[in-house]
């Protein structure tokens, strides 16, 4: 299964070109990266589209402007009602920025729906690297809660560096160590790094084979 960095932000949003970030990702042990606002002409790069909207109506109208099958559609998370509605939308693949949402914004009901619809929740590692003190502690605690829900309801999760520069990209090994901060085990990290491949190919992580 290919290992995928869930989201990067290349130039002009960041300071590194998409090709350079793809080269760096390969050096750091990734097979592919999802580039927000990028294109999939560069080898090892999947096109990503981030929808940051305040209402579900706005998300739906933005989705209508995106061609069918055009990369990974990610929506920035909001409150619980917003998240549940977004999870129900057919083309949404990833719920982003869950650590910035209110605490009850993703509960067991949303977890069940995410599992049923195959929508992944992104665990953004950039606050673990870039923040210090109470902000980082809050994110770690939030991810620990999400991980408990993930273990119970088996909805997909992805791990993303959300790097805006090659200096923000981290290796697979670094991600394993950073994920240990919120008690995620190595097998779970590898599963999270390869979950986008299953989601995009429409495969369920567990396949039932009848004899």
């Amino acid at each position: 299964m290919p290992l995928i960095d869930g989201c990067i932000h290349p130039y002009p949003e960041g300071d590194s070109s998409i090709r350079r970030m793809a080269l760096t990702a390969r050096e750091l042990g990734f097979d592919q990266v999802v580039a927000a606002g990028g294109n999939d002409e560069v080898p090892g790069v999947l096109k990503g589209t981030i929808i940051a909207a305040t209402s579900v109506k706005e998300v739906v109208s933005t989705l209508q402007g995106i061609p069918q099958g055009d990369g990974v559609v990610m929506v920035t998370s909001g409150d619980l009602a917003f998240n549940r509605a977004v999870i129900g939308l057919r083309r949404v693949r990833v719920l982003k920025g869950i650590q910035r949402s209110p605490k009850g914004a993703f509960n067991h009901v949303a977890a069940r729906e995410a599992e049923a619809k195959g929508v992944a929740v992104e665990l953004d590692l950039s606050p673990l690297v870039g923040e210090r003190g109470i902000q980082r502690q809050r994110v770690i605690s939030r991810y620990r809660d999400l991980l408990q829900l993930h273990r119970r309801y088996h909805f997909p999760v992805t791990l993303a560096s959300n790097a805006r520069s090659i200096l923000g990209q981290r290796s697979v090994r670094d991600m394993v160590f950073l994920a240990r901060l919120f008690d995620m085990e190595e097998g779970e990290v590898m599963g999270a790094l390869s979950s986008l491949d299953s989601i995009l190919s429409g495969r369920s992580p567990v396949q039932v084979v009848r004899g």
Binding site: Y11, D15, S16, S17, R19, R20, L23
Partner: peptide, 8 residues
């Protein structure tokens, strides 16, 4: 600093 590749 900006970081590019020779192909850019």
């Amino acid at each position: 600093m900006l970081f590019f590749a020779t192909e850019d």
